[in-house]
Design a protein around this nucleic acid. Structure first.
Lengths: 114, 114
DNA sequence: TTAGGAATTGCGAATTTACGCAATTAGCGG
DNA sequence: CCGCTAATTGCGTAAATTCGCAATTCCTAA
């Protein structure tokens, strides 16, 4: 089995998350499964574009899809995607609130970050 | 102040993390500040390439740099980048084991792949 | 001041990714 | 079967990333 270095996989994961539409989809799906139609209504994107981004998320096994009649319903596929999004939000709020650099710097230098 | 939607910022963050070299740098810096020279020795990349990736991390305030004599030392800049990397590792581990389960299940039940 | 290493920056070429239109598949109702 | 909505796929082009070479900056030692 050709082993892919973990950091390669990690980079790939982040790269796949690196698009606004895909982030929106994942965030919306955190509240439970949702048909494409609703995703389409909630996100500012054209049907074709949404499909393509959903395909990316599907191929990387971050979401699952199943038909229900004439509509297709998407859902988060297991793994803790939520943790990632949460960590991202945490980091961003820190950065956006910005000027508490003092605090983070203190915490950082204190421990020597081991 | 022109507010950037949070999901845009989040996507941007992930996009910036989405490169093997940048991931490696962040992981290495988790053990403490490190001069470029050492990063260069530890990562398989050319000086010019490393500089460019370091520039990306600098511009997005994920790392800081300061000169120490003739060398430049990089360090993680505050925020909980570590949390992100940890969450990513967790998700990847789940995913990889999950793929194995799926694979064995496929081999056990049917040979058909449609 | 000059030589040299360390690190960065400025392009240009090559690769990758995103977007939109047209065409296609799939289910539902008349 | 036919028409219609939902969703996806196939391309071609536009836009963004990446990478390496050459040139530049900054520091140190002679």
């Amino acid at each position: 089995m050709m082993s892919v270095p973990l950091y390669e996989a990690k980079a790939e994961l982040f790269r796949l998350l690196g698009h606004p539409v895909r982030i929106r989809v994942l965030e919306l799906l955190q509240d439970g499964p949702m048909p494409v139609r609703e995703l389409l209504a909630a996100i500012e994107v054209e049907p074709t574009g949404l499909s393509q981004h959903l395909a990316v998320l599907r191929r990387s096994s971050m979401v699952t899809a199943h038909r229900d009649g004439s509509t297709v319903v998407y859902a988060l596929a297991g793994g803790d995607v939520a943790d990632l999004l949460r960590a991202a939000r945490k980091l961003l709020t820190q950065k956006l609130t910005g000027q508490n650099e003092l605090l983070t710097e203190l915490l950082d230098t204190e421990t020597g970050v081991r």
